[in-house]
Every structure is written in C-alpha cells, then in structure tokens.
C-alpha cells in the first residue's frame, strides 16, 4: 500500500479512484520498489516478510518492554549495504531486530564461518568468526563494508 503524506484536500473522479485494495497486492511506498526487490532477491520471501514486520509492527517497548523501534538510519544503512553485498550461493542471511532498534544480519561464509553485522543509528558493528574479528564503521562506509564482507 502506498503511504502518502496525508491530505484530504482533493479527491479523484470515480473512474480514476483506486478500486478496493486487494489483499493479494502489496504496493511499495513511493521510491521503495527497488528496495523491496532487493530484499526479495538477497533475503528471500522470509527475510522480506520479517523486515516488513519489524518496520510496521514493532513499536517502542516490544519484547520484554525495553525494545526500541527500528531505527530509520539503521534501516537506510542496511539497504546501502545490501545493494553491494553478495552471499555464498544458496545462502539466505537471517535478519533480526535488536533491542536498541538495529538490524542484525547473520550468515555463514563459504567456509561455514559465521559473519554478523548489526546496523545501528550510529553505524555498523560486525563480527567475523574467522579470525575472531570485531569492529565498527560509520554509515558512510557501507559499500566498502559490503565489499569486504562479501569476500570474507
């Protein structure tokens, strides 16, 4: 369904109005069609569905009462990362909402070693099981991080 800025200052002639929305059709928000396609391609239907849930149904206080809503900055950084990231053949990463409103992405590299990245409102923190590496980067480095971890 499109989410528009709200205004009721005009309405369309009947012939141009939307029909009753179909529950079978999901209409991405304006400018988000490419993003939705990206989620489907790289995370599969399950990952796409989880992100939809996190964005829309996890308000402040979710979980044990301390969970924060998904950070819009974390979400935007996550999208920038996904645009460049590649994953081993047949691998669909898992995605989680963290207590602080970040998005955590987990998968195994070609050697079966864990790779975890948490996107937050401040940047991205990552962990590579291979070499026991932990570090963090700013939002400006999402493309470089994706290239680095795709090769890990």
């Amino acid at each position: 369904m499109m989410t528009l800025l709200s205004s009721d200052c005009y309405h369309l002639h009947e012939g141009l109005s939307d029909e009753v929305p179909s529950s079978e059709v999901h209409r991405p928000a304006p400018n988000e069609a490419a993003q939705e396609e990206l989620f489907l391609q790289k995370l599969g239907a399950r990952g796409w569905g989880r992100i939809h849930q996190f964005r829309n149904y996890y308000g402040p206080g979710w979980g044990e009462g301390q969970g924060r809503s998904l950070s819009p900055r974390a979400m935007a950084a996550f999208c920038q990362f996904l645009e460049t990231a590649t994953f081993p053949s047949g691998c669909l990463p898992s995605v989680f909402l963290t207590d602080r409103g970040g998005l955590e992405l987990c998968w195994e590299n070609a050697d079966g070693k864990a790779v975890q990245v948490e996107f937050t409102s401040e940047g991205a923190e990552y962990y590579l099981e291979e070499g026991e590496i932990e570090s963090m980067v700013s939002h400006a480095k999402m493309k470089a991080l994706a290239e680095q971890l795709s090769a890990a």
Binding site: C9, Y10, L12, H13, S71, P72, R73, A76, H139
Partner: peptide, 25 residues
Amino acid sequence: GAVVKVDGVPKSGSILDVDAWFGAL
C-alpha cells in the same frame, strides 16, 4: 480528474501533486 474545494465550493479540474523528501541518512 480531481475535485477540490475552492472557497467551500467543490470544483472539478486538474491537480499537480508533488511530494519531495529526504531519507533518514
């Protein structure tokens, strides 16, 4: 094909509706 109220009176005509926005980052 739009109807807008002008001074309380509904009028039929055309609209241009432009929405511009910046994302979170």
